[in-house]
């Protein structure tokens, strides 16, 4: 099978500080990858480069056959196919949950309003907050907001979903409801790259694990191998602290 995402020798600097060093990564369709590592290791930057919320300076990133370049039209098309869920939800506070979900399908995919709203309700049902559709984001709990954000991304019917620490800003009680939705999504066959510290979730859904430190991919392994016998000492240390 051809890779849906392919990163080759990607390097990125913030001014003089190098955040990504020689990143190589292949993701196959329907593959689930969990990225972990200490804070500041470049995990978020890595997935933000995949839909060019950050620009990489060297190497190539190919998403679904399109190389990411300075051509903006191309990037908008790629972004429409790559859903993203953020740590801080980033719902649009001036729009109702329903409008949050239907806005991009209407304006980017040019769906008729009625169809877009049906699609939105379908996805809100999928994350089990269809009864909140008329409310504004400020009226929802953190867990509900994050589920709404997932529904919003799903409404674009993306081929790939990127999750940037989706549960890090949530109360412990609400983490489960969001993870349940993500597990469902994984079982439905979505291609996913998830940055998270939830190792239970990783064991349940991930095909491959990636451990990053200081801008490098230190270890990439099948999930079982990663937890049972990690190769590098840095990974062992990290796992001993987090588990």
């Amino acid at each position: 099978m051809t890779n849906i995402i392919q990163l080759k020798n990607v390097n990125k600097w913030f001014d003089k500080f190098q955040v990504l060093k020689e990143i190589n990564l292949e993701v196959k369709p329907k593959e689930k990858i969990v990225v972990c590592g200490p804070s500041g290791s470049g995990k978020s930057t890595l997935i933000r480069c995949i839909n060019r919320l950050e620009e990489h300076q060297e190497g190539s990133i190919v998403v679904d056959g399109n190389e990411i370049s300075v051509n903006t039209k191309n990037i908008e098309n790629i972004r429409a196919e790559v859903g993203m869920v953020f740590q801080q939800f980033n719902l649009f506070p001036h729009l109702s949950i329903l409008d949050n979900c239907s806005l991009a399908p209407i304006w980017v995919k040019k769906l008729p309003k009625k169809k877009a709203e049906e699609l939105a309700m379908e996805n809100l049902k999928r994350v089990q907050i269809e009864d909140q559709a008329k409310k504004f984001p400020g009226q929802l709990s953190g867990g509900q907001q994050q589920r709404a954000a997932i529904a919003r991304a799903l409404c674009m019917e993306p081929k790939i979903m990127l999750f940037d620490e989706p549960t890090s800003a949530l109360d412990p009680e609400m983490i489960k409801e969001v993870l349940d939705v993500m597990v469902d999504l994984a079982k439905g066959g979505m291609t996913m790259i998830v940055v998270t510290h939830e190792m239970g979730f990783a064991k349940e859904v991930a095909d491959n694990m990636i451990f990053m430190d200081e801008g490098r991919i230190v270890e990439k392994a099948k999930t079982n191998d990663f937890f049972e016998n990690p190769k590098s000492d840095r990974t062992k240390l990290f796992l001993s602290q987090i588990l």
Partner: peptide, 14 residues
């Protein structure tokens, strides 16, 4: 907040 720009861009908006 910058997140609003990120979210809009990630949905494919120009």
């Amino acid at each position: 907040p910058r997140g609003q720009y990120d979210a809009a861009k990630s949905l494919g908006m120009g």
